[in-house]
Amino acid sequence: MTNGKSIGDTLLRVDDVSVSFGAVAALTDVSFEIREREILAIIGPNGAGKTTMLNVLNGVYQPDHGTMTFNDRTYTRMRPSEAAEHGIARTFQNVALFRGMTTLDNIFTGRTLKMKSNLFMQAIYWGPAQKVEREHRQAVERIIDFLEIEEIRKVPVGRLPYGLQKRVELGRALAAEPKLLLLDEPMAGMNLEEKEDMCRFILDVNEEFGTTIALIEHDMGVVMDISDRVVVLDYGRKIADGHPDVVRQDSAVIDAYLGVAHDAA
C-alpha cells in the first residue's frame, strides 16, 4: 500500500492537549504527530474523544491546555477560519453540506480562500470577477472529474443519496487544496461498494496530490488496509500509536475494544 511513498517530516504535532466540557474530560494530555504525506487513522471505542480531537485540530474547540505545532508554528488556540487559512480542511461525521446549493456550488465554496474578488466587480460580473470565476470553475471541474460526479453537477445536494453526499463533501474539502485533510468517519453508513470507492479516492488523493490525511474510522478492515499509522484513543487518553500491525497486537488496545477481564474476588 505504502510502496513508493516517502513519508516526510512532522507536519502537525499535538502536545499535551486536554479538553473538558464541564466535569467531563474529553481529552487528557494527548500528544501525537502527523507526518507529511501519511495517512493517519485515529481509532477508539465510542466516546473515546476522536471527534473532539479533530475539532481541536481545526479550531472548532479550544483546548484547555496544550499546544499544536503546524508547519513549525505553535498555536494554543486557533479559529476555524484561521485553520482553513493555514491549509487544514475537513469533512464532518454527519454530512455538513450546504443543502440548498448544487454540487458545483458546494465544491466552489471550498475555494473561498483562494478567490479574491470584490463586491462591486461581482455585481457587474465583468472583467476580473468573471476571469476569477472561470479559473476556479476549471479547478472545481478537475475535482468533479476526479471524484466521478459529473452527472450530479447541477443537482441540489439535498436530493442526493447519502453516499454521494459524502463524496461531494470530500470534494468540497479537496477544493481548498489543503495540506492536511481531516476526515471524520468518511465511510460511516456506506455499503461495501461505496466504501471501496471512498477508499480508492482517499488513497488517490494521498498519492496524486501528496495530501496528508488524518481520518477517524470504525471499520477496522479499512483502517488496517489504508493507514500508514494508527493512533488509538480510549476515554480521552492515547493508549497506542504505531504501525497498524503493531497496534493490532497491543494488549491495551485489545483490552479497550474487548474489555478487561477483572479478577473475580
Binding site: 476555524p80 482553513a84 475537513r90 455538513a96 440548498g100 446549493m101 473561498t112 468540497r172
Partner: peptide, 30 residues
C-alpha cells in the same frame, strides 16, 4: 447587479452561512 452577486462567490458565501454556518466557517468563510 443582485443576480450577479448571488451567482458569484459572494452569493455562495451567503448561502453557505444560511445552510450550515459551522461548516462555512471551517471552509474559511468569515
Amino acid at each position: 447587479a443582485a443576480k450577479n452577486m448571488v451567482r458569484s462567490q459572494l452569493g455562495r458565501a451567503w448561502m453557505a452561512i444560511r445552510d450550515m454556518d459551522v461548516a462555512a466557517e471551517v471552509i474559511g468563510i468569515r
